[in-house]
């Protein structure tokens, strides 16, 4: 299922004295099966874009196509349930949204809300639980007895159990330790592949965007300022840094090294392994090793 945003504009508190433009002229295409990262500072409009992906917000101008459903500005858009069923959003700190008495009840709440039978919802709960790396024994426990990391996984299982085509992740690793971060990011990447999902990752982390995404969109002050694949995005790192944005550590390091030594590598490397190999080859060619 493709999602296409065309020249989307959104204003908070529209037609009041407090009106404020949050995003403007935003056009993004998310083809089926793509892993797309949206990057920007706090206040750049990332979260506003995110809420358009399943019509939690509707454009003030422009249009959003979600599969064959088109949501346009200035028209009443009813029956959005089907859209919301197909686009699952994992919000920041999703564990804060747990509320049921047992893990199982919490996971089946979403699918049943969308009209799935209880038996089917329970079947899906078991599959989703396994996919987030938890044991079935946990189903009868209260979600509030679990550790923070387990709670987050349960909340994610609740979104997966809705069987979405698209999964949207808003800073999914905030507050986790480095191991937890890597586990969760690898888990989403595997789900992306296994379930053939489209994945949209909203993040501050250039490292994660460079590592996992096929496509990257960079937002600033409500506008899309750059989009492309990671190599395209980071091949002009100075441009990003001028905008006050980070680049992945390895890219920044390559720049510093080139600046200090006068070495010129013909491409930007996105992994430590590739960069160290390229530097070695450069030094060898120069007969200095």
């Amino acid at each position: 299922m493709d999602i296409v945003l065309q020249q989307v504009e959104y204003r908070y508190q529209a037609k009041t004295p407090f009106e404020r433009i949050a995003i403007q002229d935003v056009s993004i295409t998310i083809p089926s099966g793509v892993y797309l990262a949206i990057i920007g500072h706090t206040g750049s409009g990332k979260s506003t874009v995110l809420q358009h992906l399943n019509a939690l917000l509707q454009p003030y101008a422009g249009s959003v196509s979600i599969g064959d459903r088109v949501i346009k500005a200035n028209q009443k858009n009813k029956n959005l349930k089907d859209v919301r069923k197909r686009v699952g959003i994992v919000f920041q700190f999703p564990e804060h949204q747990l509320f049921e008495e047992t893990v199982e009840k919490d996971i089946i709440f979403g699918p049943m809300n969308f009209g799935v039978s209880e038996d089917e919802a329970k079947r899906r709960a078991r599959i989703a639980l396994k996919q987030v790396g938890l044991q079935e024994e946990i189903l009868e426990k209260s979600p509030f007895e679990l550790s923070g990391g387990q709670m987050r996984r349960v909340a994610i299982a609740g979104v997966l159990a809705m069987d979405p085509d698209v999964i949207v992740l808003d800073e999914p690793t905030a507050g986790l330790d480095p191991r937890g971060r890597k586990e969760i990011m690898d888990m989403f990447y595997n789900l992306h592949k296994e379930r053939n999902l489209s994945t949209v990752l909203v993040t501050h982390s250039m490292e994660d965007a460079a590592r996992y995404a096929d496509q990257i969109v960079i937002m600033q002050q409500g506008n899309v300022v750059k989009q492309g694949n990671p190599v395209e995005i980071f091949s002009e790192p100075e441009h990003l840094m001028k905008m006050g944005l980070d680049v992945p550590n390895v890219v920044r390091f390559q720049l510093k090294l080139q600046e200090k030594t006068g070495m010129k590598l013909d491409t930007i490397y996105l992994s430590i392994d590739e960069l160290s190999t390229a530097v070695r080859e450069y030094i060898r060619k120069d007969n200095r090793l």
């Binding site: 550590n249 390091f253 090294l257 200090k260 006068g262 530097v279």
Partner: peptide, 29 residues
């Protein structure tokens, strides 16, 4: 990673600047 690729370094660095400087003095300059 540099050491594993055969680029010897005198110590472990916690800052990028120091690492860049060592590479420069040992291999480029």
């Amino acid at each position: 990673a540099f050491r594993e690729k055969g680029i010897e370094l005198s110590k472990q660095y916690l800052s990028e600047e120091e690492l860049v400087t060592e590479l420069w003095t040992s291999y480029f300059n």
